[in-house]
Design a protein around this nucleic acid. Structure first.
Lengths: 183, 183
DNA sequence: GGCAAAGTGTAGCGGTCGCTACGTACGAAG
DNA sequence: CTTCGTACGTAGCGACCGCTACACTTTGCC
């Protein structure tokens, strides 16, 4: 007796582990203890199932983020805290999913870009709010939030693909240090 | 009468346009004026065809790059030149392919990471050599090359997904400016 | 000319895909 | 007790996948 919520939960776990690329109903169903038949019964279509899973993932992002930079007193510290959170083990699966959505959006933006944007927005908002709180002037805070998030995305990408945590960590620290100096 | 080289060339064009995700032989064959049968005949397998296409793409990268930062006199100018080249129209398809390989590597590194690394290496090498030529000390040049390339990758990703060239360009300029200040 | 090798079309294999038709248990409502 | 909507299993549809068997033509070499 699986409810739709339970199935969504279990499916998110499966998607975290196996990705969205080449996701197919039958292995997913087997993994969560049901059948492709019942997934379609509950969700109506594969697209709807994926939409529900991504929405759940989105809620997880907002919850898991907390106010990671609440105690940061400089842009440098904001970046350091953000990087710390992004590279934490429990964020790993989410980061992979996020980068997967990036790639899918590049090829089929109409279908995937909205989901990508929704996963990105909480980070961007929090960075921006924190920079504003640190008295970074408005226009500059907007540009800097984009730069910081994009840079951390690029670093995460490198880290996940190469697995060379030490080298990428050094680059992340160098980036944070760049923000210590004014201008 | 298609030779293997001609087919590789045409296939690269198709991959640029349609991506590696869900690439299938029959539409590809139709687009390049042959049949799936003949693609297998010439390349032996789909995997081999993709390997050849990526190798060709790799040669295109090295050719197309030239010495984009030859006249740069500061790290800031290096970044500006690199960004200029990356966002040039003729690099667009290549950037999409590169980011696609990133995502594929995240999910199946054993299969895709080598191709990703080969596409990345020419950029990393050139950035590093240029930074060294600008008298950036050795260890710092290595870290900085990683940081610059990862940041530009992240910015490209944002640019390609959101299509908001103006906002991302502003962030790229801000990044270049960060490198203008010493330390 | 004889003949092997290279090239090419047709047809189809075994597999996976999302999804559906159909039948049936079962619990609540009348 | 009957009725009916929800839950679920079985079987399979039609499309597409990478790839192959086989027969045929064309080509190049002796």
């Amino acid at each position: 007796m699986h409810t739709r919520e339970e199935l969504t939960e279990a499916a998110l776990g499966y998607v975290f582990a196996h990705g969205l690329l080449n996701l197919s109903l039958r292995p997913l169903a087997a993994a969560v203890g049901t059948s492709d038949r019942m997934l379609i019964y509950h969700f109506g279509s594969k697209a709807r199932l994926i939409a529900d899973v991504l929405e759940l993932a989105n809620r997880r992002v907002s919850e898991g983020m907390g106010d990671f930079a609440a105690t940061a007193r400089t842009p440098q510290q904001v970046v350091e805290r953000a990087w710390q959170l992004m590279t934490a083990p429990q964020t790993d699966a989410l980061a992979r999913l996020y980068l997967e959505l990036c790639a899918l959006s590049v090829r089929d933006g109409a279908r995937w870009a909205p989901a990508h944007r929704k996963l990105r927005e909480p980070w961007l908002d929090l960075l921006h709010r924190r920079l504003v709180a640190l008295k970074v002037p408005g226009r500059r805070a907007t540009v800097l939030a984009t730069l910081v998030l994009d840079t951390l995305d690029g670093l995460m990408l490198d880290r996940l693909v190469t697995g060379d945590a030490a080298r990428v960590d050094a680059a992340a620290r160098a980036f944070a240090r760049l923000l210590a100096e004014p201008r």
